[in-house]
Design a binder for these strands. Structure first.
Length: 365
DNA sequence: AACTCGGGGGC
DNA sequence: GCCCCAGAGTT
């Protein structure tokens, strides 16, 4: 069932590479989508778009990108912004540690690189949040450097174009693919070439039912020649989803509800949520959250009542949320900055993950 | 090398 | 409801 070895690219002749380069770049020039981050060569704007696109589809990213660039138009502004405001601009995008890395990166560029995104691969990779893919994307798109930018789209295209059956969920496969990228990326217009590969993966060479009939490199595609484009790429790893019961407390004081800032590491790091606790095995309903409020903040719950259920599925985790209304002992003092009483109007200023937005929406109804 | 980290779209 | 989508940091 193996088609070609992954070192098949060594057999690629110059003529074939030139053909793929020309057809892809021509196709990209005629067919690429007009997107906000394609209107600029500002390496910072490219950087922001690439970090967003690492995790989210184009249609979702567009409004976030415009808002983010509007609020933080330069590296300097981002470096000096309050983290709360930065997180708020990322609210709903997910993977919140990435935007904290982005801001860390902005600070590094200001302090170590005179405010300019470095142009050398070795240097740009040192910046927090910039790995092999993002480094290649910024250098090729913003600086016209002939380096590969291998993301999931590109690995899928390569696996089909060259009939490579390596498991793309394996880390070393990406390094193999990067070697291929090094061979095929042109000195002339590496920007359009790399973006062309990714655009092809997004529009034509899609994960399911690829549109080979419209593909500019159909004639060069070894998988299509064999009719096995639907069997590629090979991807083995699958994640199991764990289910947990999460108790959530809606603690009211007059018209205000209690919010808490989550720890700076782990799931939904640094975001604001209602107090919550994973239900302990064998505990009475409600007791886990009562215990959490007591142990973490010295708060005493006077009474508690089950309100409703909500659900949220993460990649590897499902929360079955049990939402409780509760009253705290009246004399509770809040000496923790990570604890706030907030009106439903003020809540818009806090970065709240989608899982808890769902709970919020149920309250408002 | 294995694990962690969100949320959305297609069918 | 079940399937799919990804790249970077950490350990």
């Amino acid at each position: 069932m193996v088609m070609y070895k992954a070192d098949d690219w060594k057999d690629l002749d110059r003529e074939r590479i030139l053909c793929i380069q020309k057809q892809l770049i021509d196709w990209y020039e005629k067919n690429h989508r007009k997107l906000p981050w394609r209107e600029t060569r500002d390496p910072y704007h490219i950087w922001v778009s690439e970090v967003m696109l690492q995790q989210t589809r184009v249609d979702t990213v567009i409004p976030y990108f415009l808002n983010f660039i509007g609020k933080f138009p330069t590296i300097e502004v981002l470096a000096q912004a309050h983290e709360e405001e930065v997180l708020k601009a990322w609210e709903g995008l997910g993977y919140y540690s990435r935007v904290r890395n982005l801001q860390r990166g902005a600070k590094v560029v200001m302090s170590q690189y005179g405010g300019l995104v470095p142009k050398e691969l070795q240097e740009i990779k040192k910046i927090p949040g910039i790995g092999p893919y993002t480094a290649g994307a910024i250098l090729s798109i913003a600086y016209d450097k002939a380096v590969p930018a291998v993301d999931g789209n590109v690995m899928r295209v390569f696996s089909r174009l060259f009939c490579i059956d390596y498991d793309i969920s394996d880390g070393k496969t990406r390094r193999e693919m990067e070697q291929i990228g090094n061979v095929v990326v042109p000195e002339e217009n590496p920007s359009f070439f790399n973006q062309g590969l990714m655009e092809l993966g997004a529009l034509i060479c899609t994960p399911l039912s690829p549109k080979c009939i419209a593909c500019p490199v159909y004639g060069q595609c070894r998988a299509a020649q064999k009719g096995i484009q639907n069997e590629l790429p090979i991807k083995k790893k699958k994640q199991a989803v764990k289910e947990v019961e999460l108790e959530v407390a809606l603690a009211w004081k007059e018209d205000k509800v209690l919010l808490m800032k989550r720890p700076t590491e782990g799931l939904l790091a640094s975001l604001w949520t209602f107090p919550s606790a994973v239900r302990e095995e064998g505990w009475e309903p409600g007791n886990s959250i009562i215990q959490e409020l007591k142990e973490q903040y010295g708060m005493t719950v006077e009474n508690i009542a089950y309100l409703f259920d909500a659900h949220h599925v993460f990649t590897h985790l499902k929360w079955n949320m049990k939402v409780y209304g509760c009253n705290l002992a009246s004399e509770e003092k809040l000496e923790y900055p990570q604890v706030q009483w907030v009106t439903l109007d003020e809540i818009k200023d806090y970065a709240i993950p989608t899982a808890f937005k769902k709970v919020l929406n149920k309250i408002k109804r």
